[in-house]
């Protein structure tokens, strides 16, 4: 059977891994290639690299990093952050990335999803959606969750699927950073609504949260950053736990 995926997310700034809470107090967390290798060797199913640098050099630095990661690791990885054109994506894929994740740029110009799906195939197009529940409605936010839009999560999810996204990475801003678990209610609705895989993100605090999001949230994959970086959860332990909970997992 197809297994549920565990995906550590690495935040990248100027070619280095950084860690902090909610993008504040960022500390250098070492060489991304070494960290990626460690994760892949300990059972991560995929990796996501989120580039948060804002320098003019960023494109070149990121392309070099992607190449080094692709050389070193033997599992799939996704690259996101600041991607807004077919050209950006071509550079990343040509350097060995398997998928790219787009977020604000897709909201601002939804045709980008169609363009990428046509040119490179849906399999490499992940649309990341940050949303926050306000007065009972899940509202899509931009710029790492800072800027609200008028778009509702479920409408947008349906649209990105129709435009050719291969996967949705949904981050609940209500849950992100809380360590109280994933937004399973919204995830379950999402998973029924669209027929592409859903990655749950935001809220992981312990192993039970992963089991809950796979069972109650019907997520196909779960992403987390800090619990892995700060070694609060070790991936081999998490996978053993999930297996005991009868969740299909790759061991």
């Amino acid at each position: 059977m197809l297994t549920k995926r565990i995906i550590p997310c690495l935040d990248i700034k100027n070619g280095r891994t950084v860690k902090g809470l909610n993008f504040l107090d960022l500390k250098d967390a070492g060489n991304p290639v070494e960290l990626a290798k460690k994760y892949s060797e300990t059972g991560a199913d995929e990796l996501v690299f989120l580039d948060i640098s804002a320098t003019e050099e960023r494109r070149k630095t990121l392309a070099n990093l992607v190449k080094e990661v692709a050389r070193a690791i033997n599992i799939p990885f996704t690259v996101g952050g600041g991607i807004s054109s077919v050209e950006d994506v071509a550079i990343l894929l040509n350097n060995g990335a398997d998928k790219v994740s787009i977020n604000s740029s897709a909201v601002k110009r939804p045709e980008l999803i169609n363009e990428l799906a046509t040119k490179f195939g849906s399999q490499c197009v992940v649309v990341a959606i940050d949303a926050k529940q306000i007065d009972g409605k899940w509202i899509v936010h931009l710029v790492g969750g800072k800027e609200p839009t008028v778009i509702e999560l479920f409408d947008w999810a349906k649209e990105v699927e129709q435009r050719g996204a291969g996967e949705i990475l949904f981050t609940s801003m209500n849950n992100d950073g809380t360590k109280n678990g994933f937004a399973n209610e919204a995830l379950a609705i999402l998973s029924e609504l669209v027929n592409i895989p859903i990655i749950a993100s935001g809220g992981a605090g312990n192993s039970q949260h992963f089991a809950d999001t796979f069972i109650h949230g019907k997520a196909d994959a779960a992403l987390a950053a800090s619990v892995f970086h700060f070694q609060e959860i070790e991936i081999p332990d998490l996978k053993q736990f999930l297996k005991k909970e009868n969740i299909q997992i790759r061991l």
Partner: peptide, 13 residues
């Protein structure tokens, strides 16, 4: 078919 998520994406045996 639409009975399953498409694409199949991930690790299978």
């Amino acid at each position: 078919s639409n009975e399953v998520k498409v694409p199949q994406m991930g690790w299978n045996t």
